[in-house]
Design a protein around this nucleic acid. Structure first.
Length: 482
RNA sequence: GCCGAUGUAGUUCAAUGGUUAGAACGAGGGACUCAUAAGCCCUAGACAGUGGUCCGAUUCCACUCAUCGGCACCA
């Protein structure tokens, strides 16, 4: 048994939960469940990133107080826990007082190391947006949102983090195996490092951006979101006070794993690790980067109308159906496509016709012909499947489980217990066969716990009661054609 | 433009330097009936393009094209 720390990234709460984040959450949850099943002690953290310019703007646009705006969205993201049946132990919000204190302590430590200094930052400022614009945001030298106004070159004093100082140590960090998964993403991080690191700004003038964590001993500045948000990975454990000892147990002495999207390499594997080095905190052991979900071969966007919303998908298909789709039909590390039609096909072919129908046919036979429930030996996932999940091969583990379902169906067809039960001379043989397939079903249920927990327990309950349950995955009407 | 990843049947994926490139969904056909008109069996169907290395390439290399990510202050 060992202590294992697991976290997703914190989604930025200026929009509804994205299916890509649901993927990240479900992958992390699968890992947490598999580890617990193996006897490990797991600390699984999730949360929301709630500070910064974009959120302030979104709140203003919505005509809401910033705090109540973020409260609303934090609640939306917490709904995911129920909707996806997630087993995260904590939900950290970057507006939590304990997080704010932790970030300020992080700041003090980095400052004490001489890694925080003040410098004049000059950028192009759009008066209309009341914000600095990055090069990418500027078209033809103008802000696309306010093309009639000239951008102003504005300077302000900000604090900077001495990122450049950590170039060599980061290179060394990246040499360790499995710090980046998949391994080939390392090249990207190394290339970034070798391009030379620039110190990054970690504060803004409070006059321009009020929605942030105050900089210690400087009321005129608030922290920029990066410094704030990244610190959540340890503030969630109670760092620095660590009254419950979770930080020591799970971060310092345990194994740490972060799950993030493939666009996060720079932030998670470089900037965050440099901050940890500066604060003399252990770096993250492993960071797993998942791929993106596209829809119809394109990035999801409201204007295209191809957005797959996780909450409405759960409403239509159910929690375990979405978990199933994300774990089996989405590649762990490559981009994958999901459309209404694809999800409907997966649901029908494998859940309704597959596991759902198998449970119905087996339990009907059992209910009618067995005199007592079949006793199950402990239903646990097989080591083979557990290790596949532990190696982030969620889809391969799922393939293995669904092969067991096919084999059970094949067996029933081949051995025909439903026919043999009707003839007195083969009735006993039929009952034995039925017991065997019920046992097989129990095994399948045990295998499914980490992936489809409710389905797993419903199957086990049906076996215990020796009763055919309500259809697990009812047949649904086809989706409207787009 | 540079770096990395991906490109395999209608669709979603897999494998492999060498006999017939696997599977699932969908499609067509068949025998059955315990089950959610489900399940089972059979059939048809593919290696992005060009060039190279090699006795032999889908697999290795180069280039082209397409998609995605990165190339720093949007997280």
């Amino acid at each position: 048994m060992r202590a294992r720390y697991l976290t997703t990234t914190l989604p930025y709460v200026n929009a509804d939960p994205h299916i890509g984040f649901a993927l990240e959450a479900v992958q992390a949850d699968a890992l947490a469940r598999v580890w617990r099943a193996a006897g490990d002690e797991v600390f699984f953290s999730m949360g929301t990133d709630e500070h910064g310019q974009k959120i302030l703007e979104s709140a203003q646009k919505a005509g809401q107080e910033t705090q109540s705006y973020v409260d609303h969205y934090a609640a939306e993201f917490q709904k995911l826990k129920e909707a996806l049946n997630l087993t995260n132990d904590v939900f950290i919000r970057t507006t939590d007082p304990t997080h704010i204190k932790a970030v300020q302590e992080m700041w003090r430590r980095c400052e004490a190391k001489g890694d925080i200094y003040k410098k004049t930052y000059t950028g192009l400022y759009c008066v209309g947006c009341e914000a600095f614009k990055t090069e990418k945001e500027i078209a033809d030298g103008k802000c696309p949102l306010h093309p009639t106004q000239e951008l102003k070159e504005v300077s302000e004093e900000n604090y900077f983090f001495r990122f450049s100082k950590y170039q060599d140590r980061l290179l060394t960090y990246l040499e360790k195996s499995e710090v980046l998964i998949p391994e080939w993403r390392r090249a990207e991080a190394v290339a970034f490092l070798k391009g030379g690191l620039e110190d990054f700004s970690i504060s803004r003038e409070r006059a321009r951006l009020s929605w942030g964590i105050p900089v210690p001993n400087d009321d005129s500045q608030v922290m920029y979101v990066w410094f704030d948000a990244l610190t959540n990975y340890i503030s969630t454990l109670g760092w620095p006070a660590d009254e419950k000892g979770n930080f020591k147990k799970f971060w310092e002495e345990g194994e740490t794993l972060q799950v993030a999207g493939k666009d996060q390499v720079r932030f998670q594997s470089l900037m965050w690790q440099a901050m940890l080095m500066s604060a003399d905190v252990k770096t993250t052991d492993r960071i797993f980067y998942h791929g993106f979900i596209t829809s119809g071969g394109q990035k999801m966007s409201k204007s295209i109308g191809n957005v797959v919303n996780p909450l409405s998908t759960v409403e239509r298909y159910g929690t375990d159906a979405l978990r199933y789709i994300l774990l089996r039909h989405v590649s762990p590390t490559e981009d994958s496509d999901l459309t209404e039609q694809l999800m409907y096909d997966y649901y029908n072919a494998h859940l309704t016709n597959g596991i759902g129908n198998l449970v119905a046919r087996v339990m009907k036979l059992a209910e009618e012909h067995l005199f007592e429930p079949v006793a199950l030996s402990d239903a646990n996932a097989s080591p083979k499947h557990l290790s596949l999940v532990g190696a982030f091969k969620f889809n391969e583990a799922m393939d293995g489980i669904f092969q067991m379902i096919s084999r059970a169906d094949e067996r029933i067809n081949a051995e025909e217990p439903y026919k043999k039960i009707k003839m007195p001379e083969t009735a006993d043989e039929a009952r034995l066969l039925i017991r065997t397939v019920v046992q097989e079903l129990g095994k399948i249920a045990g295998e499914l716990e980490w992936a489809m927990p409710r389905t797993s327990s419903r199957i086990l309950a049906a076996i215990r009661e020796n009763k055919k349950p309500e259809n697990l995955f009812p047949r649904l009407p086809a989706p409207a054609v787009l």
